[in-house]
Write a protein that binds this DNA or RNA. Structure first.
Lengths: 109, 109
DNA sequence: TCCATATTTCAACCTCTCTTGAAATGTTGA
DNA sequence: TCAACATTTCAAGAGAGGTTGAAATATGGA
C-alpha cells in the first residue's frame, strides 16, 4: 500500500453511491451480494451500479466472484484494512499522540 | 461527522498534492506552516497551493490562522480523527471482527 | 503614504468523472 | 439451439475538478 494506492482508494470512497455500496457490503459480510441486488438496494440502473462496482474493485476495496449467472461482490477487508493502516501509521509514526486528538483508543502502531 | 462530511474529507485527501500537504503538516505539528512554505515544499506556484489549501480547509482537515503577513496552516487533528473514527466505527459497529482482517490492534469502538 | 511581501481570487482552459440508454457478453434451463 | 436472465461495455453529453497567469486583497515597514 503506497501513496498511489491510498489515493485510488480514497478517491473510490469519496463518492456517495460507492460509500453506500461499501457500507451495504460490510453489512452483508462474507455472503456478499450480487450486482443486481446491489443495484436494487442503491435504487440505480444496472450500468450505473456496474460502473461504480468496477471503480471499487479497481481500487481494491471489493472483490468479485462469478456464481453461475450472478456476480457476487464482497468487501475486501484486506483492502479496507490496508487503507486504515496507511492513514493510521502515517499519523502515528510522526506524532504518537495524535490518537488523543482523534478520540481513538490507545494502541501501538 | 455524517456521510456527507466523510465524503468531502475523503475527496479532499484523494489528490496527490493535498495528501502530501497533509503529511507535511502532520510533520510540522502544532507549529504548522505558512502558505508560502507549503507552496515551496510542494514545488508549486502560490495559486495552485492556495487552491488545494482551501479545499483541505473547506473539508475540515486543516485550519488557518493569520500571523501578520503570513497565514499559518495546521492539520486539524479533530477533523482527521473524526474521519478515522467514522470509517472505523462503520466497520466495527457492523462487524466486530473486521479489525482482525484489517491487521489493526484490538480495541473497543 | 508608498512599496514590498504574502496570499487569495478570478477567468479560461483542459481533463476527468458521472450518468444514461442501447448494445454486447456470458450463463442457464427448456 | 433458443430464449430469458444477469451483468458489463460503449458512446455521448453534462458536470465537477485541476492548472495557469494575471489581477486583487491584506499587511507591515520605511
Amino acid at each position: 500500500m503506497d501513496e498511489k494506492d491510498a489515493i485510488a482508494m480514497l478517491g473510490a470512497l469519496s463518492q456517495e453511491m460507492r460509500l453506500r455500496i461499501i457500507r451495504f457490503l460490510i453489512g452483508r459480510g462474507d455472503d456478499g451480494a450480487s450486482a443486481g441486488e446491489i443495484a436494487e438496494a442503491m435504487d440505480a440502473i444496472s450500468s450505473k451500479a456496474s460502473f461504480h462496482l468496477s471503480a471499487l474493485e479497481r481500487a481494491g476495496l471489493i472483490t468479485s466472484e462469478r456464481q453461475s449467472r450472478k456476480i457476487i461482490y464482497r468487501v475486501s477487508f484486506l483492502g479496507l484494512g490496508g487503507l486504515l493502516s496507511f492513514i493510521l501509521n502515517d499519523c502515528c509514526s510522526n506524532h504518537p499522540d495524535i490518537r488523543e486528538h482523534c478520540g481513538l483508543p490507545n494502541f501501538e502502531c
